[in-house]
Design a protein around this nucleic acid. Structure first.
Lengths: 171, 171
DNA sequence: CGGGCTTGGTTCAAGTTTGAAACAAACCTA
DNA sequence: TAGGTTTGTTTCAAACTTGAACCAAGCCCG
């Protein structure tokens, strides 16, 4: 089948998207590195843990929630643990499991960094959008994210190079 | 001033955005790694060079166009050069300058990879959006990107941690 | 001309990410 | 219940990114 290239409008959209994502991620990383001494992902790990009822999450669930690989998470948590912001505990029900908890110190760092982070997100993104656009943004990326949901359910997953096969949640 | 936290809707939009960006970038990297043996950025470097009238660009211009740091580009071009897909030439007008050109082999690799890449972009993004949403996407990220334009022009740039100071284009 | 500042690019070490391989514990199932 | 498969996590080496430091080459102005 002959390739359906991107239309001019799609191309413009794609380019604007790619450029913005790079700029926003960079800016976010830089801001958080400055104010909290960690990149955005690490902040997100703390944030995710802090929002959980027990302030703890199994590694796999955390990785899935953040859409990152397990090994990336392992590395990040090891660093955060070294910094005393996160602690690892054993899972009582499943001896294979490892549970990450945010420490008091972790909470303090997070709370100290949060305002600046939110300000930055606003400055970079929301301040530049109309209320309708915020709604559109949500719909667009909800749709995009949905495209990935249940990936491994399909038998075709193996054929498709861009799909990541991964395990199921089980916390 | 007390922090203006994100509204629930903003929060949903932000999360969907963050998750999708991670998923899309990963999928893109994986697909290109499979089919072209290089990550998305490297493909973009080739693509950018190929679209230029002379199929060449100064390092700084290339870096600015792709919104990446010079050092990142240096590394990437070194690799691509090692693979024979890009060549470095001296800039005659400015002896400091270095110009990256895409080689014939680079063009071939690019052309071979392009259809699969476009397919993937469609599958991940455009196939999931209505025509109106494509327009919205473009407007949203054009606005976001514009927020960064002329960064260094402002005297306040130094105060703001998320801004990257960089030189002007001069090709 | 002769510093001194700016610009274009690379280099280097430290940090991060990737993907495959290794392990161990849980889960079948015959 | 033994043996094989799946699941949860880590490990390891190779690749990549970051930011600061460095080196030239252009520029500017007295």
């Amino acid at each position: 089948m002959t390739t359906r290239w991107l239309s001019p409008e799609e191309q413009r959209a794609w380019r604007a998207y790619i450029a913005s994502v790079a700029l926003v991620e960079d800016a976010l990383d830089r801001q958080l590195q400055q104010e909290a001494g960690m990149p955005h992902l690490y902040y997100s790990i703390l944030a995710t843990l802090s929002e959980t009822p027990e302030r703890r999450l199994r590694m796999t669930d955390l990785a899935e929630g953040l859409k990152i690989t397990r090994s990336r998470l392992t590395y990040a948590v090891t660093r955060l643990e070294k910094d005393g912001l996160v602690r690892r505990e054993d899972c009582r029900w499943d001896k294979r499991g490892s549970i990450a908890t945010i420490t008091g110190e972790g909470m303090r760092v997070l709370e100290r960094a949060a305002p600046g982070h939110v300000e930055t997100v606003r400055a970079l993104l929301f301040d530049r959008l109309s209320p309708e656009q915020v709604g559109q943004l949500e719909e667009i990326f909800t749709a995009v994210a949905e495209g990935f949901q249940g990936e491994d359910a399909h038998a075709t997953a193996d054929d498709v190079p861009w799909r990541r096969r991964s395990g199921k949640s089980c916390s």
